[in-house]
């Protein structure tokens, strides 16, 4: 069975290659090729560049929110060190899509890590070690991580490990203490605008007023999400994009509705607020999205006192957990709105 599958894989890769030209994800297409091109992470970039001059890199741990350039940095380093050809031999990238149980760590990763390196190619520094990139490492089990730790010790002479994760706390201590840690921070609006504009130019998109702001708002500093959204919107709506279309693709509820909902709650009108909430739900918006946006609005709103906000937010958290457990959206949302109305009507307004 294994052999068959592998053969199929080859076939797919070949085919994927043919198709890739037509529809490559923009995230990959517009990925910075050099470390120095990585935007906004100035401290990280300068530190990495210095380290690369010596050609002797430590094990590295990149952490930070999604879409801030961790994978990009890791791939760019590899490219700069080995070039495109040797890179195929010297670099192994594994992300959460690949099986990464303990058996894989013991098998695939070990066999990659333990092999010795061959000759370098001219034109690139080609330091005498390989690089193993473990993307989304926080989804690995503790067992697998412990097995990894042994490997890091044993094969550190021939292999460098780049560990990428969102939460450094989910990486076991023995691993994080063996790595040089780099924190990636959320992108700010300016950087994102610049990049999005660049892509829009490359893809011949016309971005209407407000599109950039919508992207920035919806993606919350996640560059990958912003680019994916842009691509989705472009494939669904064609090259002319507006803020509304971006929001539509992102499944974000129009701000007016959320605002109205909050106002109804504050007014203590349970009938109307319930009806509106149900309406939003029937429009197909996921309940979690409603709660999230409601929460943001609530926090910013000056209609309520802090105590009341806190009380409602407590409920929001509880309800979110229940939704994740699979509870019914309508009941949970109604409950949440009913609590909000009660809180607003029992306590004096400001």
């Amino acid at each position: 069975m294994g052999g068959e599958e592998e053969q199929m894989d080859v076939d797919h890769q070949h085919h994927a290659h043919v198709q890739a030209k037509k529809k490559e994800p923009w995230v990959d297409k517009y990925r910075p090729k050099k470390v120095s091109d990585v935007a906004y992470q100035t401290e990280v970039v300068s530190a990495l560049e210095k380290a690369m001059e010596t050609h002797n890199l430590p094990h590295m741990l990149f952490y930070g929110p999604p879409g801030t350039g961790k994978t990009t940095c890791a791939l760019a380093i590899c490219k700069q060190l080995y070039g495109p050809e040797l890179g195929k031999k010297r670099v192994l990238e594994l992300n959460a899509s690949d099986e990464r149980g303990i058996s894989v760590v013991r098998g695939k990763i070990k066999s990659f890590a333990s092999t010795t390196v061959g000759e370098g190619v001219p034109g690139y520094p080609c330091p005498p070690y390989k690089i193993l990139i473990l993307d989304e490492a926080d989804s690995m089990t503790n067992d697998a991580q412990s097995a990894l730790r042994r490997m890091m010790e044993t094969y550190s002479r021939v292999t460098r490990f780049f560990i990428l994760c969102n939460y450094v706390s989910k990486i076991i201590d023995p691993i994080s203490s063996r790595c040089a840690k780099f924190r990636f921070k959320s992108l700010d609006g300016g950087t994102m605008h610049e990049r999005i504009n660049f892509i829009a130019k490359g893809e011949n998109l016309q971005l209407a007023e407000g599109t950039l702001q919508a992207l920035e708002h919806v993606s919350a500093g996640d560059m990958r999400k912003a680019i994916t959204l842009l691509q989705s919107a472009a494939s669904l709506f064609g090259p002319e994009l507006t803020g509304d279309r971006i929001r539509e693709v992102a499944g974000v509820i129009p701000d007016e509705k959320i605002e109205e909902l909050l106002q109804l709650c504050v007014a203590g009108d349970s009938q109307k607020s319930q009806a509106l909430a149900e309406d939003i739900l029937k429009d197909g918006f996921p309940c979690l999205q409603i709660l999230e946006q409601f929460g943001y609005y609530l926090a910013d709103s000056d209609l309520l006192e802090d105590e009341m906000k806190a009380e409602i937010c407590l409920k929001l958290g509880e309800v979110e957990k229940k939704l994740v457990d699979g509870a019914d959206e309508w009941l949970q949302l109604s409950h949440c709105i009913s609590i909000a109305t009660i809180v607003c009507s029992t306590k004096p307004e400001k």
Partner: peptide, 15 residues
């Protein structure tokens, strides 16, 4: 409010 409160609570437990 009470109805919806209890319903939400027990529907969650049902899941």
């Amino acid at each position: 409010h009470e109805v919806i409160r209890w319903a939400a609570q027990f529907e969650h437990k049902l899941q």
